[in-house]
């Protein structure tokens, strides 16, 4: 039975294996200088929130997001928070949809895409 008791090297290998799996989740928040969890910040997001209020909320929680056209994304270790802005008439930009999803194992695809783009950038 003693041979089944994990050795120190086994624990080290287990830590390496865990890091191998979670590294995209650790890197995604770092990319946007984000935070471990934006859950409490997301609870303050509401439909009708203006662009200025959204930026203020981000500043308050010390996170940065990436925006693509009308969509903005904030990542934390576990989830991605996605809000969509809409402009109607003379009114300022306002959030009209919000979405949250766990980015595992999607994060692998994102990271591989980023790595591929970085590799292509090095070649050109």
């Amino acid at each position: 039975m003693r041979k089944f008791v994990p050795k120190l090297s086994d624990w080290i290998l287990l830590v390496l294996a865990v890091l191998l799996i979670v590294w995209p989740m650790l890197l995604i928040p770092l990319r946007g200088w984000g935070t471990l969890s934006f859950a409490s910040g997301y609870r303050e997001v509401h439909i009708g929130m203006t662009w200025d209020e959204w930026k203020q909320l981000q500043r308050r929680y010390g996170v940065e997001g990436t925006c693509d056209a009308t969509d903005c994304f904030v990542d934390d270790v576990l989830r991605t928070y996605n809000v969509t802005f809409r402009k109607s008439g003379d009114e300022p930009l306002k959030i009209w949809s919000e979405r949250v999803y766990v980015h595992f194992p999607l994060s692998y695809r994102i990271q591989l895409r980023d790595l591929y783009q970085a590799f292509r950038g090095l070649l050109t």
Binding site: I47, G48, R79, N82, W96, S97, E98, R99, V100, V102
Partner: peptide, 14 residues
């Protein structure tokens, strides 16, 4: 409505 229907994952659109 937003507060009542907020879940761990999901989306809400107006």
């Amino acid at each position: 409505i937003e507060t009542a229907t907020r879940t761990f994952e999901g989306w809400q659109v107006l």
